[in-house]
Amino acid sequence: MTTQAVRGASHSIDPNLPILNVYTMQEHLNSFTSSETLISRLTYTFAMLAVLLCDRSL
């Protein structure tokens, strides 16, 4: 279903209802998983840095 189809279906039910930011499920999942991936990569990077720094101090 395209954005225009969603807007048309909504307009036929309630013409005064504003439709903002229509996303596909794939776009929504991509935005969610990209932030989760970033957090996990940063956590991994800082954990490895901590292990390396700890190893050098011993």
Rank of each mutant, 00 (worst) to 15 (best):
L52G: 06
I19T: 06
L53E: 01
H28V: 13
N30M: 09
T43I: 04
S10W: 11
R41C: 03
V51Q: 05
T43D: 02
R7W: 03
I39H: 00
A9K: 14
S34E: 15
N30P: 05
E27N: 08
M48I: 11
I39L: 12
S12T: 12
T45H: 03
L58G: 13
S12V: 06
Q26T: 12
Q26I: 06
R56A: 06
Y23H: 13
Q26H: 11
T43Y: 02
S40P: 02
T37R: 08
S40V: 00
A9H: 04
A50Q: 12
V51L: 02
L17G: 08
D14Y: 09
R7E: 09
I13R: 08
A9Y: 07
M1V: 05
A50I: 14
I39E: 03
I39W: 01
E27W: 00
T45L: 08
R7D: 04
S57F: 01
A50M: 15
L38R: 10
T37K: 11
A47E: 09
G8M: 07
T45G: 15
L53C: 07
Q4P: 09
I19M: 01
R41H: 11
D55L: 13
L29M: 13
I19A: 02
T24V: 04
I19R: 00
V6P: 01
F32Q: 14
N21Y: 13
I19F: 12
Q26C: 01
T45E: 08
F46Y: 15
I13W: 01
N16C: 06
Y44T: 14
L49G: 04
L58D: 10
T24K: 11
S35D: 10
L38V: 14
T3G: 02
L38D: 07
S40T: 00
A9C: 03
D14P: 04
N21M: 03
I39D: 02
S34C: 14
T45F: 05
L20I: 13
I13K: 12
Q4W: 00
M1H: 03
L58Q: 14
C54G: 15
S35E: 08
E27D: 06
G8K: 06
L42N: 14
P15K: 04
S31K: 11
L52Y: 14
A5S: 07
T24W: 10
M1T: 05
V51W: 08
T43W: 04
S34D: 14
T45S: 14
V6G: 02
S35G: 03
T37G: 06
E27C: 05
V22C: 10
T45P: 09
D55G: 15
Y44C: 13
G8W: 12
Q4E: 14
I19E: 00
V51Y: 09
P18T: 07
T2A: 00
M48N: 07
N21Q: 02
Y44M: 15
